[in-house]
Amino acid sequence: MREIVFDTETTGLDPRSGDRMVEIGCIELVNRVPTGRTFHAYFNPDRPMPIEAEQVHGLGDAFLADKPRFHEGVLDLLEFLADSPLVAHNAQFDFGFLNCELGACGHPEVSLERMIDTLAIARRRHPGAKHSLDSLCTRYGIDRSHRVRHGALLDAELLAQVYVELTGGRQIGLELAAQHTETVIEIAAFAPTRREFRAPRPHAASAEELARHKAFVETLESPLWTS
């Protein structure tokens, strides 16, 4: 099964207010294993970059000035995405920007039925814990020491590892191996053991034994059952 893990960087939080996508990074997975194929692009948003957003991802006006507009790279992006499920962290945010950009240049929106939200998965698996990408990397022992700032492709690479852990982790490899290994267990047929019949032994005390017991009891001083 082919899946695409992706992340975006933007000028702000709300595409409906005019915020734009400025970077997208995509990682291809097949059967939850990275294939090495990626898609990465920067876009000129045709609007100034707010300082608050630039402090998050480091993409300023000077850097983005010579980058293509979204409509100039959209066909390459759509070819890479194809019809695969799309995995993102807080996916409503990324889908909102992706679909807004697609709509602005006359392309159909990506169906939300293709959306896989790792934030929702993490909340179900680890209720009450922290669910940021950084926190999940720490939980699963994923190295993020090279993540100084947000970056779409880098974050998609980290998220791909988190997604694999959230959906089975190393157990996936064991399951795939099990599909190709036939295990035969031989069970010995049960055969009850035949035993020789023995008549029950007499268990009542003899007259002599009863007499000896009575004589012994009479020697006891102040027995409990007489008090």
Rank of each mutant, 00 (worst) to 15 (best):
V217Q: 09
R32K: 13
P200V: 03
L13C: 03
N31C: 05
E218V: 04
K67R: 14
L29Y: 10
D14W: 07
G12I: 08
I187D: 08
V87A: 10
L174Y: 07
L98K: 08
V30E: 13
H146Q: 14
R32M: 13
V148C: 02
R16D: 10
I185S: 06
V184C: 10
P192T: 00
S135Y: 05
P34M: 02
G25V: 03
V74Y: 12
A156Q: 05
R47C: 06
R198N: 09
A91L: 04
E101F: 02
A178Y: 02
L98C: 10
E28M: 05
A82S: 15
H203D: 15
E79A: 15
L81N: 02
L224T: 11
A205W: 10
L220A: 02
L81V: 06
T219G: 12
E165R: 07
F43P: 01
A41K: 10
G151F: 01
D143S: 11
G168W: 03
C137S: 12
I185L: 09
V5A: 09
I172M: 09
L166T: 07
Q171W: 07
H213T: 12
E157V: 06
N44D: 09
A120S: 15
D46W: 05
A205N: 08
L81W: 06
S135W: 04
E28F: 01
D7T: 02
V5M: 06
E101T: 09
L78F: 07
S222T: 13
A88P: 00
I185G: 00
E209A: 15
G151Y: 01
P45Y: 00
T193P: 00
Q55F: 02
C137F: 04
T11Y: 01
Y140T: 04
R37C: 05
Q171S: 14
P50F: 05
G103A: 15
E28R: 10
R201V: 11
G128E: 06
N90L: 00
T35F: 07
Q179D: 12
R198P: 03
A211S: 12
E109M: 09
L13K: 01
T193L: 15
E109P: 11
V33T: 12
E113S: 09
E23G: 02
G151V: 02
F95C: 04
S222R: 13
L210Y: 04
H203V: 10
R147M: 07
A189R: 12
P127Q: 06
C105M: 06
I142G: 12
E28G: 12
E196H: 04
C105K: 10
E221L: 08
A211V: 10
S111L: 05
G141A: 09
E218R: 14
A189D: 14
G18M: 04
L119H: 02
P45N: 00
W225Y: 13
A82K: 14
P34H: 03
A65W: 00
V148M: 03
G25P: 06
D83W: 00
T138C: 07
R149F: 11
A204W: 00
S132Y: 00
I185Y: 05
F80N: 05
L13R: 00
A120T: 13
H71C: 14
S145I: 06
H180V: 13
G12P: 07
E72L: 01
Q171H: 13
L86D: 03
R124Q: 15
H71R: 15
R144M: 04
F97M: 14
D143C: 13
T11R: 07
K214H: 06
I185K: 09
P48N: 03
L81F: 04
G18C: 04
E101A: 15
G12S: 06
E3H: 02
P127H: 07
E186R: 12
E109Y: 01
